[in-house]
Amino acid sequence: MQKLDDIKKIEKLDPEDMYHKIIHLPEHILNAYQNPQIHLPSSFGKLNPKKIKRIVICGMGGSAISADIAKAAFGNLIPVEVVKDYNIPFLNEETLVITISYSGNTEETLSCLRQAIEKTDFIAAITSGGTVKKLVDEKYCWLELPIGLPPRSAIGHLFFSLVKLLETFAIIPSQELVVKQIVADLIKKAGAISVNTPTEENIAKTAAIAIKGKIPIIYSSSPSLAPLAYRWKCQINENAKYPAFWHYFPEMNHNESEGWEAKNFGDRFIPIVLSRMNEEENYKKRIRAFKKIFGKIDVKYLEYFVEGDSLIEEIFSLIYLGDMISFYLAILQEVNPTTIEFINFLKKEISE
């Protein structure tokens, strides 16, 4: 029996059941969008959203990836800046500041929230509670998240709560049809990547096997898919306790591509290209050229293609696969995909 087909072994390594937290992504998305727990203060009706000229979204780690996706998806409608730090570089009264913290106690995000309170009336938050809730409840608009999930496995709740929030401020049009399509597409994909599907028929399991023993370097075919490559990297880091790196076309052609000229390193890395079948020719020609380098140095690579008509559909079509690959890689590594010992160690060290 293949290691990844041993259900009892998987259950033993996954006592907190990260598997079902990942595989239930379609349900999380639907619940977040259709049943949002929105808290509006009595003063909300006095705000004029037309005065909002830019958006700053503040968050860290698993809570911040939603901000990256939102910037890529909606940055053409209004300037969007993502802040993963203690300070917002520029802030005025025409700025909508959205703070995202699953726990509600992320110190960098709290720092940004306190700065925002001093500068603008346009403030919103997405959280399950904590200090963020205390600061915004009955004063500003906020969306309440369900408790009990690691932030990285709450992306369905986090991102689509952010979508509802942007709709509430009349920043973006309704995404109802997009959400329905995403959920339908992901449900179709679930069976093919589930633990019950044998390794030889399971694209996520075979990918994890190909990655094991090598360091993945994940490339997106264009800047718009960069949040997807970054998500894959972070999920492999946190779930599998495994190093991974990322970059995107065309920028990587101007620096990182030269790194592959190093001798005796080829068998230590595995490139993974995340792309569109109908990618713009400007990007396609660069990817084709880069693949020729892999041929010259005899490096095998993996390639996966997004699906969907909108950027959000595209990104979530491969987030699902990437999350499951990271889970199966954790099983191959014989580590618990939920625990984050080094992150918790750092938090403890910093707090002392």
Rank of each mutant, 00 (worst) to 15 (best):
D5W: 06
D5Q: 07
D14S: 02
P26F: 03
N31E: 09
I38N: 11
S43Q: 10
K46F: 12
I55M: 07
G62L: 04
S63H: 07
S63W: 07
A64V: 02
D68N: 03
K71N: 03
L77K: 15
D85T: 09
I88C: 02
Y102A: 12
E107S: 07
E108M: 11
R114S: 07
R114D: 11
Q115R: 15
T127N: 14
V132K: 12
P151D: 00
G156D: 00
F160Y: 06
S161L: 02
T168V: 08
A170G: 11
A170W: 12
S174V: 05
Q175F: 00
D185H: 01
I209V: 02
K214A: 09
K214W: 07
K214S: 08
P216A: 04
S220M: 03
S220V: 02
S221L: 12
Q235H: 07
I236W: 03
E238F: 00
A240F: 03
F245N: 07
P250Y: 12
P250Q: 14
W260A: 08
K263Q: 13
G266M: 14
F269V: 13
M277Y: 13
E280R: 15
E281Q: 15
Y283N: 13
I287W: 07
I287N: 12
K291G: 14
I293A: 13
K296R: 13
F305E: 09
E307I: 03
L311R: 00
L318V: 04
L318N: 05
I319G: 02
L321Y: 03
G322F: 01
D323I: 01
Y328G: 02
V335S: 00
N336F: 00
N336T: 01
E341N: 09
E349A: 02
I350F: 01
